[in-house]
């Protein structure tokens, strides 16, 4: 009798372990889907853009730029106080401007997402934190991040659903 009970208990444990594994596999599959599933987006027709950026220690103006994917972006960059530079993370784009002397450069915004741009010429103590943001198209990774967060909460709830913790919680 006792043995029988034990063996059914074991079987139950085994079963719950199996469902737990299945759940984990399912959740990680969902996570991968959320992170990497390509989302077909209708990108507006690429246009040429001219953007003027002022650099003053330690601020770009404007520091927040939005363009569409595929746009040809020409940046007119001018420093207003000391020598500043601009380089965009992930793009091979760099300009240096002497105070009052505008320089221009062009790049094609072919990569979507959020990219920080930074001052590339040491310009004083806060130089490492002289940062601006460029958005190319909608910021998909942020949306994916939020969805992954929702999945994380759901996963947390399901991973504890059948555990003792909640059951004892409910009876008490």
């Amino acid at each position: 009798m006792m043995e029988e009970l034990l063996s059914t208990q074991e079987e139950l444990n085994h079963q719950s372990l199996q469902t737990k594994w299945r759940l984990m596999v399912l959740i990680s599959q969902c996570a991968l889907l959320i992170l990497f599933l390509p989302i077909p987006l209708v990108t507006p027709k690429p246009i040429d853009r001219l953007i003027h950026i002022d650099a003053t220690s330690f601020q770009f103006t404007p520091a927040e730029i939005k363009v569409n994917q595929g746009d040809r972006v020409t940046i007119e960059f001018v420093s207003t106080d000391v020598v500043h530079g601009i380089s965009i993370d992930g793009y091979d784009f760099q300009l240096t401007s002497d105070p009052g002397q505008p320089v221009t450069g062009t790049f094609v915004a072919s990569w979507p997402g959020m990219f920080r741009f930074r001052c590339s010429v040491a310009c004083g103590n806060l130089h490492p934190f002289m940062i601006g943001k460029l958005w190319v198209g909608p910021n998909l990774i942020l949306i994916r991040g939020v969805l992954l967060g929702i999945l994380a909460v759901v996963a947390a709830i399901f991973s504890l659903k059948k555990s003792k913790v909640l059951k004892t919680g409910k009876t008490s």
């Binding site: 996570a31 992170l35 990774i141 994916r144 991040g145 992954l148 967060g149 999945l151 994380a152 909460v153 996963a155 947390a156 709830i157 991973s159 504890l160």
Partner: peptide
Amino acid sequence: QVIVLALGLFWSSR
């Protein structure tokens, strides 16, 4: 960063 933050939310929810 997205993965770390999602793991953090999973963990703190648990």
